[in-house]
Design a protein around this nucleic acid. Sequence first.
DNA 1: TCACCATGTGGAC
DNA 2: TCCACCTGGTGAT
Length: 271
Amino acid sequence: MPEGHTLHRLAAEHRRVFGGRPVAAESPQGRFAAGAAEIDGRVLSAAEAYGKHLLLEFDDDRVLHVHLGIYGTWRFGGLPVPEPWGAVRLRLSGAGGHADLRGPNACELLERGEVKLLVDRLGPDPLRADADPGRAWARISRSRTSIAALLMDQSVVAGPGNIYRAEVLFRQGIDPMLPGRALSEGQWSAIWADLVVLMAEGVRSGRIDTVRPEHMPEAMGRAPRVDDHGGEVYVYRRAGSACLVCGSVVASAELAARNLFWCPGCQPAAG
DNA sequence: TCACCATGTGGAC
DNA sequence: TCCACCTGGTGAT
């Protein structure tokens, strides 16, 4: 389920429910039994997100690294802790409630040095105050790879996924197939600034809304796609429907094994 | 009940 | 470029 905004919300939720207090940890499914035993009883000292990675720090300097992949979920609940159902890789519980982790791509304990290696290979995260978009521009401006592919490369920008990728390119009127080095620095600045705004709103609301007020359905006579989580989008998974802005048919193509969506009218190919 | 899809990543070729 | 990984939801059978 996750693009970066989800992970930042999850970090905040872990701080709120577990922060500063001892946490009980177990692995009902069994696949993280040894790691859970190491965490069990320790105090959660920090929880933060970097891109799509969640880092939970415990008071013994060990860091739990979780990456949800496509399938992973965290589900929070109250007390008393219910019987686990399904494949719960890790269950955390404390005085403030409990959380169940299912289907993660990664769930592992890291040393500080390993955390640094992980973070160092990520590009700037639009949701982090310490992000330097210039680092991404240095990669993009030298690349022949399409901007659509670059925006999905977490070593270029950390946090955006397939929805934000499609939506930000639509909002900026940029052809997804444009090579990175054909972008102007102004276009990149506009993409970055838009990601900062959109993703911060995603953290606040818990859903991905990208449709501007002036393009809302009442004004256009066309409906944005409301995704499974309630977000309103311009092009993501709207292939074959009319563009909310110009009425062109939204296109889709497979790019690097992911579905790309764009409006050929609003995002014309250069040249 | 089954097949397929999904906001992702990393390794093998 | 292909594939394995992992789980849940949805729509077809």
